[in-house]
């Protein structure tokens, strides 16, 4: 039987969810969707049915979130709960039915990115864990890890700086480059922390696309064969040594969140209540 991170939604049967839930995590511009676009045909080639899904792709709330973000008027709590609405709709209407039908579900980000982005904006981590406690535990989480110096040229030379990806809601008036650097540094810090807590399989996103793709294929093949995802070598300057064990057996508690709060404070993020 499949497990959740604590609570079970009404009417959700956790039996017979025989498909595989595979999460690709990583920050903005790291190449997640490029990889998902390569992985899907690769899996289909092997005769696997694949559902790919990602943030703001729900039938219910996807459009609403995009519209609201255009106006730059979303409060940080509102943004969090709106994303949770989008997530729950996709979980109930897309992910769970696909898992029941035996699909491989490739999800471009999961609750972890949502939590990291909210924590950086000063939202209480315990509250977020509680709200998302209904989420299914995935079969594997692959974290495309990059440091901010390698990330910046990728973003600049592909799509340019985006308002939200640069955390401009946190540092209004600052130039996009400075804001991007500060925001992404804080975000990567949170993702690294979550990577450790939830036992992500870390993949160095620094090398060329085919190299990263090769590592993902290897890891996913193992997961589909019922084995734990093998750990890829991490960047030499980074510490979190990923463990080669089944992902997320327990709900981690606690963690140091002083830095996130300090960040939100320093950037003028005002407490909501």
């Amino acid at each position: 039987m499949r497990e959740t991170y604590g609570s079970v939604l009404p009417g959700m049967n956790l039996e017979d969810l025989s498909g595989k839930l595979i999460v690709i995590e990583g920050t903005d511009g790291v190449g997640r969707s490029t990889q998902v676009n390569l992985l899907k045909p690769w899996l289909e080639q092997q005769g696997r049915a694949v559902l790919d899904t990602g943030m703001t792709r729900s039938d219910l709330a996807g459009k609403g979130i995009k519209q609201a973000k255009e106006g730059h008027i979303l409060g940080r709590l509102t943004l969090s709960v709106f994303y949770a609405t989008d997530f729950v709709d996709r979980l109930e209407k897309q992910i769970v039915p696909a898992l029941r039908a035996g699909f491989v579900v490739l999800t471009d980000r999961y609750i972890y990115s949502l939590m990291a982005r909210a924590i950086v904006r000063g939202v209480d981590p315990e509250w977020l864990r509680h709200v998302y406690s209904f989420a299914l535990k995935p079969d594997a989480m692959f974290y495309l890890r990059i440091n901010v110096d390698d990330l910046i040229p990728r973003v600049v030379f592909s799509r340019g700086f985006d308002y939200w990806e640069s955390g401009m809601d946190l540092h209004p008036g600052e130039d996009m480059y400075e804001s991007f650097r500060r925001y992404q540094t804080a975000l990567l810090g949170q993702l690294d922390k979550l990577a450790e807590e939830y036992h992500f399989t870390v993949i160095d996103a620094g090398p060329e696309v085919p190299v990263v793709f090769g590592q993902l294929k290897e890891g996913i093949s193992r997961v589909l064969a019922g084995q734990p995802p093998v750990s890829a070598p991490t960047a030499p300057d980074r510490k979190p040594a990923p463990r080669a064990e089944p992902p997320a057996e327990t709900v981690p508690e606690g963690g140091d969140r002083a830095s996130a709060h300090a960040f939100a404070k320093a950037s003028g993020g005002d407490a909501a209540t």
Partner: peptide, 30 residues
């Protein structure tokens, strides 16, 4: 618009009903 859409098309489950109303409330609170 999101709430309207969900209600009109009867897309809401207990969980999404709960969260969409919480979003509405969060926006009014903030």
């Amino acid at each position: 618009d999101t709430t309207k859409r969900g209600k009109k098309r009867r897309m809401l489950t207990p969980a999404s009903f709960s969260l969409i109303h919480a979003t509405d409330f969060a926006d009014r609170i903030e």
